[in-house]
């Protein structure tokens, strides 16, 4: 396939992917109608409608209040997430290689996954105080078991039949890695990573709400103290919008690209 043609194909696939987002847009807009209706029923003080909220949010952006806080929160979430994905994936893969390690780590993963992040937060406050480290650590500890479990699953479920094929055809170790293990494991890693991303955002806001003086969580705490529902909703919309954009504009396209072999890109 010539490079021009593959570029053309990739462009077409990207367009088709973006276009398929209209269905999601439709359902979000219907939700906005419901939200507006709720706002009508309960009044602006309790539940400002989407129009009021978006106006408030754009006001916050215009005044230069929103962006710095978002960047601070994003930085903390990404640090924690990056650490969790790196370490969790590595350890998970190692655990997946050995039945014994998998047996040992399964209850630990269940334990870690079951532990409410708020409990970690309390410990982190005791250990790290009120600085950056507390939210970063909380995010790390909340995301780590997700990445670990995904990687371990990927390692454990490798199809022995395919491994036989690889051995019968005398694949060198480098090819074993690139042509067998990695493609297989990525299909387990990606969903886990996406889940971890969602968790990291939620946890960082929660951690900031209770421990720091800056970031979206802290801003939420301020707006709550002032009974400013519109600002609170504005912050929430901003966080959700960023999450959606990150997932659907970055991770999901990569996932589709990597997993073309699973199903056809959705028509």
């Amino acid at each position: 396939m010539s490079p021009l043609r593959s570029l053309h194909n990739a462009l077409g696939a990207t367009l088709a992917y973006l276009w398929s987002g209209w269905g999601a847009v439709a359902s979000i807009l219907l939700f906005c109608a419901l939200w507006e209706l709720g706002g009508r029923v309960y009044g602006d003080l309790v539940l400002p409608g989407p129009v009021a909220t978006l106006q408030q949010l754009s006001g916050m952006f215009d005044s230069g209040q929103a962006l710095p806080e978002l960047i601070i929160s994003a930085r903390r979430a990404l640090y924690g997430l990056g650490l969790a994905l790196g370490i969790g994936t590595l350890l998970g893969l190692l655990a997946g290689r050995s039945m014994t390690a998998a047996m040992m780590s399964r209850p630990l993963v269940t334990l870690l996954l079951g532990m409410p992040p708020i409990a970690w937060l309390v410990l982190a406050m005791l250990w790290f105080g009120m600085g950056d480290a507390t939210p970063v650590f909380t995010v790390f500890i909340a995301c780590f078991p997700i990445a670990f479990a995904g990687a371990m699953q990927g390692g454990r479920t490798l199809d022995n039949k395919l491994k036989d094929v690889a051995l019968a055809y005398r694949l060198p170790w480098r090819m074993l890695l690139t042509d067998l293990y990695l493609p297989h494991i990525t299909s387990y890693l990606f969903p886990a990573w996406i889940t971890a991303l969602g968790t990291s955002w939620k946890v960082v806001v929660m951690a900031e709400l209770l421990t720091t003086v800056d970031g979206v969580g802290a801003a939420l705490a301020v707006s709550r103290a002032q009974l400013d529902t519109a600002s609170s909703l504005g912050w929430i919309v901003a966080v959700l919008g960023l999450l959606l954009a990150f997932e659907y504009l970055l991770l999901e396209p990569i996932k589709r690209r990597v997993e073309r072999w699973r199903t056809e890109p959705g028509p």
Partner: peptide
Amino acid sequence: TEFIFGHDVITGWTALAAAAAMLNLLNDWH
């Protein structure tokens, strides 16, 4: 919604949703 609320912001959101759903339907045509 239009029948119930008439000219209203709520109707506006549902109309935008209908527009998005129609654009979504165009996927089949590409």
